[in-house]
Simulated assay, not measured.
Amino acid sequence: MNKLLLTAIALLSLAGCAAVNKPAGTSTAPVANKSCQADGMDDQTLVGKTGQDAGALLNGCAWRVLERDGQRLPATMDYRLDRRNLGIANGKVTWVNRG
């Protein structure tokens, strides 16, 4: 009886991990944020701007600061093409990349 209960629980757990059927033509890739006004400009135009000015330009966009004054900051390891990662030193953006 106990083995049967454990087997049932294991099967239910696996059922929760099963792949979800998606309609044809759908993608799991991130979709660009429609409200991001900075999508029309080159990311490198942020280099040299103050952190505050860069934040204002990226309003509505996915972005984060990964490095401040040479110190790496904690961040998730997920990869998103729509997100800008910034490095800031002495209050100014020193590098920008996507991911």
Rank of each mutant, 00 (worst) to 15 (best):
M1Y: 14
M1N: 12
K3A: 14
L5E: 04
L6R: 07
L6V: 01
A8D: 08
L14I: 11
L14H: 12
L14K: 02
G16C: 09
A18T: 13
A19F: 03
K22M: 14
K22E: 13
P23F: 05
G25Q: 08
G25T: 14
T28R: 03
A29L: 15
N33Q: 12
S35C: 02
C36E: 02
Q37E: 07
G40I: 08
D42H: 03
Q44P: 04
V47G: 01
V47L: 11
G48K: 02
T50S: 09
G51V: 01
Q52E: 15
Q52D: 15
D53L: 03
D53C: 01
G55Q: 11
A56S: 15
L57F: 09
L57H: 07
L58D: 00
L58M: 13
G60K: 10
A62N: 14
A62H: 06
W63D: 00
R64I: 05
R64Y: 03
V65I: 07
L66G: 05
D69M: 06
D69H: 06
Q71A: 13
Q71T: 09
P74R: 01
P74K: 03
P74H: 01
A75E: 05
T76M: 11
R80I: 00
L81E: 08
R84H: 12
R84W: 06
N85E: 14
L86Q: 10
G87E: 13
G87N: 08
I88A: 00
N90F: 15
V93T: 10
T94Q: 09
T94D: 09
V96G: 10
N97Y: 12
G99P: 07
